[in-house]
Design a binder for these strands. Structure first.
Lengths: 253, 253
DNA sequence: CGCAACCTTGACACTTGTCAACACAAGTGG
DNA sequence: CCACTTGTGTTGACAAGTGTCAAGGTTGCG
């Protein structure tokens, strides 16, 4: 789609897609490592949450950071007129609240999409613990850096991919997140409505619906009989190929 | 349809303008504070760069982080097929390299757009210094958090704003970045081509050019006679109003 | 049963990308 | 000096992708 060419790149090829394959394995381990270390060093407050629970709201002063032990959260940025924008999803091992550190108050709202367990630590206590435990500090930095990278990848997807590729990328991201945590990834149950997915991807709910229908017709995904939010991915490779084809097709002329 | 109005979030969104009055001062101070502390504690290597210099390339192993004392950098993410995506801009006081911490190697390429001075510190040394100096650790965390917030704001702008509002938001972001560092912000000299701006905003260069021409016709901006990359903003408020009107759904051309 | 969410599908409009042509400035080499 | 090239920016005509609007279907629930 963008005909701007970039030769000079020969040296290094990030190969983003591929890299995430490796990334997933390491990630699950790191999550466990982080959780264990936190448990040992900081005695986090543990708390069970249910779908719809609000962990924090935008504007609240930052006193705690949260670590997701299980479950699923969505992060929502609110504008004055009440419109919402989904700005992120969080799985096991992810932190919640990093974005609050800069300004001292939460920049978004965290809502549970499912039953799960949240570990909460005081930010001050975490800072002190980091001073004492270099390993912990390194892990926290890694987690923040990881969030930066992930946001950047999202940005690239939104900037460069057409609607159907975005939806596919979303499914792949979700599946990869499951796989990284050792769960089966060919059978994913989206906890989001079409409107929320569209919101997250910068699309309308109708477009999301159409793309999913198209993918289903092409047998690249299959809906569960009961719920059209439960999606089966028979062949990841075929999905990949689908996106590649779109990119190549538009790119070459 | 797009009814973003001013309050909370800072960053790319038009909302930031109001807040940036306070925020800019704080930001400039923080930058100075950070630079002083780093200079005192870590003896950074200082180095002058010129337009086009490459500070690091994607894939290089992370050993150093960099702090921008003056000048301007662009961050470029390269995909396997050679396409480039501008994923960020960096000004005085900003860090370069945070995204490399997670994976241990740089995730993008940093290219100087102008003459400037870069301070470089070894990442290991920074970690150790953070253990000894809680204040430094807090500042580093703040900086990373700030990067997360900024990326998120960019994301929202790209997801929710139409083309002309994106360009306006980009100009406002640039002006705010200058103002935050104590420079005059009504006279900004973009160091980017139309293609680069479009790339950053998820638009084509033609669209960027058209929007800028339209803004100039409406007297909301003015080009310098010599270079059409030097842009004058006579009235920030009028620019804001332009975006608001677009969002309210009033057609105008 | 009615009601409220949620999802799907179609018709149409509009924003934006694509393609093409041209203008301009800065080099470069004859 | 001119011709030529290269990079950049502007503008127009057209097409494609996506949003908008509207209608109807399904599920779950009081």
């Amino acid at each position: 789609m963008y005909t701007q060419t970039a030769h000079t790149s020969a040296g290094h090829s990030p190969a983003r897609r591929q890299a995430s394959g490796d990334l997933t394995r390491g990630c699950g381990q790191r999550a466990t490592e982080l959780l264990q270390l936190i448990a040992a060093v900081l005695e986090p407050k543990r708390r069970v949450v249910h779908a719809g629970d609000v962990l924090y709201r935008a504007g609240e002063p930052l006193t705690n950071l949260h670590l997701l032990n299980s479950g699923l959260f969505k992060l929502i940025s609110l504008s004055a007129d009440g419109r919402e924008q989904v700005v992120g999803l969080r799985f096991r091992g992810d932190w919640l609240g990093f974005s609050a550190i800069a300004e001292g108050h939460y920049a978004c709202e965290a809502i549970a999409m499912d039953t799960g367990e949240v570990w909460t630590v005081r930010y001050e206590a975490l800072l002190q613990a980091c001073s004492r435990h270099p390993k912990l500090m390194a892990l926290v930095h890694e987690a923040m850096s990881h969030e930066i990278v992930r946001d950047r990848d999202t940005l690239i997807a939104l900037c460069t991919l057409p609607a159907d590729a975005r939806v596919v990328a979303f499914l792949q991201y979700w599946a990869a997140s499951l796989a990284a945590r050792g769960l089966r990834s060919d059978q994913i149950s989206l906890r989001l409505t079409r409107a929320e997915i569209g919101n997250y991807l910068g699309l309308t709910l109708e477009t999301v619906s159409r793309v999913l229908s198209k993918l289903a017709r092409a047998r690249l995904i299959a809906f569960n009989e009961k719920s059209r939010r439960d999606i089966c991915i028979p062949d990841f490779h075929a999905l990949d190929a689908f996106v590649q084809r779109r990119e190549a097709g538009v790119g070459l002329h």
